[in-house]
Design a protein around this nucleic acid. Sequence first.
DNA 1: TTGTGTTTTATTGCCTCC
DNA 2: GGAGGCAATAAAACACAA
Length: 284
Amino acid sequence: MESGRLYFDTSTCRGNNNMNMLFLGNADLGFRGRSMMSMEEGSKRRPFFSSPDELYDEEYYEEQSPEKKRRLTSEQVHLLEKSFEEENKLEPERKTQLAKKLGLQPRQVAVWFQNRRARWKTKQLERDYDVLKSSYESLLSTYDSIVKENEKLKSEVVCLNEKFQVQGKDMLEEPLSEKKVDPLPVDITQIFGMKLDEHVSSGSVGSAVVDEGSPRVVIDSVDSYFPADDYGGCVAPIERVQSEEDDGSDDGRCCFDVFVTSETEQQNHEGEGLNWWGNMYYVA
DNA sequence: TTGTGTTTTATTGCCTCC
DNA sequence: GGAGGCAATAAAACACAA
C-alpha cells in the first residue's frame, strides 16, 4: 500500500498550511514540490499520525477526518526521545527503521528530530543564560563589596587626616626651631571629592595603611598628584595611580596607592627622601 | 464554557555541503 | 542540483484560570 503525504506546489500555495496538511503523499524530507499528486488521490490517503496497526487498516482512513493534526502517542514519543538521547542527528537508515518501528512516515520522524533539536537548543540557551547570569551576579556582588571596602578605607583616611591636621597645628604652636613640621600638602578631601564633615564620624582607626608613630597620610588617586619638589622629597610621584573612579575601565580590579610618611621614617632616612608607602590592590 | 497562553507538529525558504 | 539542516512561522492540540 502506498503511503505518504501530498504537498502542494510550494510556489503557489505558500502560507496555506491547512491546505498543505489536508492530504498525505509519499514524500520525505526533500519533498518540496517534488511529490505532487492530485487532490483526488490525496483525499483517500491516511492522516498524519497512525499507530502501526492503523497503518494497514484501510477503514481507519475513511473514519478519520484527514485534516486533523494529531499528536504522537506517548509510546512513540518515548521511543523517539530514547533515540534522540543516543544520537540527536538522524541518518537515513535510522530514520527509516524508526519510522517503521513507530508506524510513522520517515518525514514525521525527521520533523520530530528537527523540532526536538530546536527545543534542545532553546533549553541549552536558557541554561547558558542562567550560568552567565549567576556568574555576573557573583562578580557584581564581589565588586560591590570591594567598592564599599574602598569607601570605608577612604573615610578612615579622611578621619586620620583630620587628626593629623589638628596635631600638626599643635606642633606649630611650639617653636619651629625645636619642632620641624611640614604643613599638609593638600586637603585630602579634595582628592575624593567629599567633604570632611561627611566622614569624621566614621571613627574607624587602625588602618593598615598608616604607620604607627605619628604619620602623615597622603593619598593619591589621580595622576601625578603630588608636587614632589614642594615636600622635601617626602612625597614622590606615583607612576601608576588608579582608582575605580578614574576612567571607568576598572575591568573588575580596583586599586589605589597610599603614601604614608612619618616623622620617624623621615628621621631615619634624613636626607635620603625615603618614605614608607604601600599599594593596595583588590583583584576580583 | 471560553479566552488565553503554551506546546507540539508541520511547512517554507534559505543555506551549506558534496 | 539534490539532500538535509536550521530559523521562522502557522496552526492544531492542550492546559488552565476565570
